[in-house]
Design a protein around this nucleic acid. Structure first.
Lengths: 333, 333
DNA sequence: CAAAGTTCCGGTAACGTTTCCAGTAACGTT
DNA sequence: AACGTTACTGGAAACGTTACCGGAACTTTG
């Protein structure tokens, strides 16, 4: 079944059929109806390859996910996928390694798939600052925002990591904790970790104290790494009464380590996460956390990218609201 | 940059360049080298649309994931993605609704994307039995197996759900439990749930007892549904000493419900999951479960599909080994 | 040494679309 | 009545690649 067959059967020329397919204004209502009737009886679907070859574009967008697909990312990816599927764009989701170079990956994908736009998930702002200029199509960086990022074709969608982390620590401080351990990524490399770190500092500053860097424990954003990091931290700092983890998944790892140290959450150690995954509310004790609006991040990212692509809207940063979710994992002292 | 430009620059004809690209035997080693040199200096990548248009195939496979992307599926998807990315095939991952019709989705995807093969994740065997015949390309059904399924082009990769569930219940029985609640899906609809259910029955039968159906509580494979189902179950059956959940995620929901009922795992109620997600070993108490070999399922599914596509290997079922993971969530009485 | 085979290469017709250009008919305007 | 406009349609050239066919230059065979 090709456009030619439809043309033959309808009596019109292929060009007319093509116009009818793309509902071009230059075709009368009645011929459009006739053609559409034939198309639907045959369940004809135009050949994407021919179409894209001709118009030199893929009519698709790529989503590049960096790091392991934890629950927080997976819900965003799934949401993005279904949002894009509802349009007439295609989606290509690519998972790249935690320590892979996202810009390099994007370059390769651009060459091979020629997407019209890219959404980055879990990308690192410092990499973009240095090397993004080689990418020329519209892009959206989801779950990270930065004031220092100025490219014509790069938008950001996310929460304010500084104030979000500040909110978390402030909550712990309010509950009487002052010896607070913090688990996060490598601040030299991960912009997100650095932002959240300075949020922690702000919270301390705001109440006349200051955050002691030795209470920061570097680790990766996964269960095992957080588990081991917490063990190290508890070993090093005996006076800790609370731990803030820069992701909920890390908090689960931490919870285990605390338990194995013979301590109890929240009686001995209070625990806070970050992200607001659904699982956290079912844990025992339920996890206090900072909720990132995952669905909204997906919505806005896709919306922005399509605007960018279709209407050439200039790049902008959308800051969404995070929210403190109280939980049983934080106790008052 | 097109093949023509390469031809012009190298002095050879486009057809020769094309042959060099696809390393066809009919091209001498030295011209192949010359052409490859030019290709790599220009970072030329052949246009996929033109290529696929010409050879009437997409050189890609589709992965259809049914239901929400829980941690167990996401690790399989991620693995499959990277396995396929390492070949010269493309991947298209599609997420469809829990209660969508996977065969219908596959038909649509076949029309629109023309993949060379499909991997189904979380599909339901009964749907396939009824309607699969409309799909003509090689397919693999991952994480489900069935003796009752015989299509020329449909392979299965997974564990034996009957014996796996039997192993779980046997473990609980060994530990002195006999009033065991079971949480799973709708057995009329979900073949997997039905298989695991009969595994439960077998375990009871094997030690001269029999499983009372009223201890089965139907729910969906997610946190909230399992949470509510557990509440109902605990309400209905006061004598329960153990609960077996047909997924680890459900077990987390159950754990919460048990806690809220004023009971304790494993002192009052023992708990078992199914799947073996990494998170389970970090929970407090750690979750006893049946581990499905996620990576291996991904490996074999991809391997089988590619064999199916390229060598026209006949369909077969690959049964992989599950394993009992002991955990603190099960106590002896 | 001719015939036959081998090895390598070039020309060209497709693949299924879109889009430009041209053309026709109907209509309104001077 | 001649012309310009509008509304629609058809023809044909592209898009970048592959695959078939034919041919040239060599090598082997009888």
């Amino acid at each position: 079944m090709t456009i030619k067959d439809i043309a033959k059967e309808s009596g019109f020329a292929v060009s007319t059929v093509s116009r009818a397919l793309n509902n071009h204004p230059d075709v009368s209502r009645e011929t459009k109806e006739k053609i559409n009737a034939i198309i639907s009886t045959h369940k004809f679907v135009p050949n994407n390859n021919a179409r894209q070859l001709k118009q030199q574009s893929s009519k698709s967008v790529a989503v590049i996910v960096k790091g392991t697909l934890n629950t927080f990312f997976s819900i965003i990816v799934e949401h993005m996928q279904s949002l894009i599927a509802a349009t007439d764009y295609g989606v290509q989701v690519h998972y790249i390694d935690e320590d892979a170079d996202e810009v390099l990956a994007a370059e390769r994908i651009c060459r091979e798939l020629k997407p019209l736009g890219i959404i980055f998930l879990g990308g690192n702002i410092s990499t973009f600052q240095k090397r993004f200029s080689s990418i020329e199509i519209p892009c959206v960086l989801a779950t990270t925002t930065s004031a220092e990022l100025h490219f014509e074709n790069l938008s950001c969608v996310g929460i304010n990591d500084v104030s979000a982390a500040c909110r978390a620590i402030a909550y712990l401080l309010q509950n009487g904790h002052s010896k607070i351990g913090v688990l996060g990524g490598n601040r030299q490399v991960s912009y997100i970790s650095a932002s959240r770190y300075s949020g922690c500092q702000n919270a301390f500053d705001n109440c006349g104290k200051s955050f002691d860097e030795s209470y920061y424990q570097k680790c990766n954003y996964n269960l095992g790494s957080a588990y081991r990091a917490t063990k190290r931290l508890l070993e090093r700092k005996k006076d800790i009464t609370a731990i803030f983890c820069m992701s909920d998944v890390m908090a689960v790892g931490a919870m285990r380590a605390i338990h194995e140290a013979g301590l109890c959450v929240p009686k001995d150690i209070s625990l806070m996460g970050f992200d607001g995954i659904e699982l956290g509310t079912y844990l025992v004790p339920s996890l206090a956390t900072i909720k990132q609006p995952a669905e909204e991040i997906a919505d806005k990212s896709v919306e922005l990218l399509l605007l960018h692509i279709e209407k050439h809207t200039p790049a902008k940063t959308i800051l969404l609201d995070d929210a403190l979710i109280e939980g049983e994992s934080v106790g008052r002292i």
